[in-house]
């Protein structure tokens, strides 16, 4: 069995201590939470930190709360915790859609939302989910906390606004009344990274037209939201025609690369297909909410 190269281990007991440790050990230190991205890389010796700072004891970072108009999710919240939260599923069904297809159930017991976002793998699902929901992330650093919109946090594959001496502490999702959302992924097998995936969130106007829309793509080479697709939806009456237009624009915005999961034309087709599917589901969910009196 492959094993990591030697390193020193230290366990942080508070966010402040974790930040001090990051400051002290600099570039050679890596934080570990779930460890399911970092440890396999270390076994392959593609990552060889000198210091591992374990933040699993930071209970203050493991919470799911609705606070005013915000759903606040601590960075150390496990994928399984999010799936277990009925409130998350009710407010943001897209999160449950995505969580159900992230890795596998055992990995989800350890993997964290903060770890997923900070790793920023291009095939990682929660970045798209957070983009679509216009989430903000809270980053703690030597100078205190700062709040970064998702669009600014995620800077590209494996690259985020979180500095080496900083720690992602919370993700905040604005709660929108009447919002419907959905995520769908094509994978070769359960536990595989996405061949492609799409996420969408919509709010319907009183007249039934689309008041707000956001569309995001995973593993399709698009950074940030598919803004043209979303723009084409706003003001439209939901239906196959509108969804097809959005799908076409999402596919145009995508820039997939060929790999073992499929060729470019297939992936671009999936951008279209999955955009239409998540729009259908998101609109149906939004419709169900507005159809219920007081919903």
């Amino acid at each position: 069995m492959q094993v990591p190269a030697p390193f020193d281990y230290v366990r942080a007991t508070s966010v402040a201590e974790a930040l001090q440790l990051l400051e002290r050990h600099g570039e050679e230190a890596r934080l570990i939470a779930g460890g399911h991205s970092l440890l396999p890389m270390m076994k392959l010796r593609l990552a060889r930190p000198d210091w591992i700072i374990d933040i699993n004891d930071l209970d203050e970072l493991r919470h799911v709360t609705v606070d005013g108009g915000l759903l606040r999710v601590g960075a150390l919240t496990r994928h399984a915790d999010l799936l277990d939260s009925e409130e998350v599923g009710r407010l943001f069904p897209i999160v449950h859609d995505a969580e159900r297809v992230i890795a596998d159930p055992v990995v989800r017991n350890r993997g964290t939302i903060g770890g997923s976002l900070a790793q920023a793998d291009p095939a990682e699902d929660l970045t798209t989910v957070c983009d679509v929901l216009r989430a903000e992330v809270v980053v703690a650093g030597p100078a205190g906390e700062r709040t970064v919109p998702m669009a600014e946090f995620h800077r590209g594959p494996y690259e985020t606004a979180c500095g080496q001496n900083e720690l992602l502490v919370e993700v905040r999702f604005p709660v929108r009344a009447g919002q419907g959302s959905a995520y769908e992924k094509v994978e070769r097998r359960v536990g595989d990274w996405a061949v492609a995936a799409a996420g969408a969130a919509v709010v319907l106007a009183d007249d039934g037209t689309i008041a707000e829309a956001a569309v995001g793509l995973t593993a399709l080479g698009l950074e940030g939201l598919a803004t043209d697709a979303a723009a084409a939806l706003v003001g439209q009456r939901p239906g196959e025609e509108a969804f097809a237009a959005a799908g076409r624009l999402a596919a145009e915005a995508s820039a997939p690369v060929e790999d073992g999961r499929g060729p470019v034309d297939y992936k671009r087709h999936l951008a279209d297909e999955l955009t239409r599917r998540v729009m259908r589901t998101a609109v149906a969910r939004a419709g169900a909410l507005t159809a219920v009196p007081g919903g």
């Binding site: 070769r188 061949v195 999961r261 499929g262 034309d265 297939y266 087709h269």
Partner: peptide, 11 residues
């Protein structure tokens, strides 16, 4: 018969 290969066959 992966999704991509099946889709290619359909094309």
């Amino acid at each position: 018969c992966t999704p991509a290969r099946v889709w290619a066959a359909m094309q």
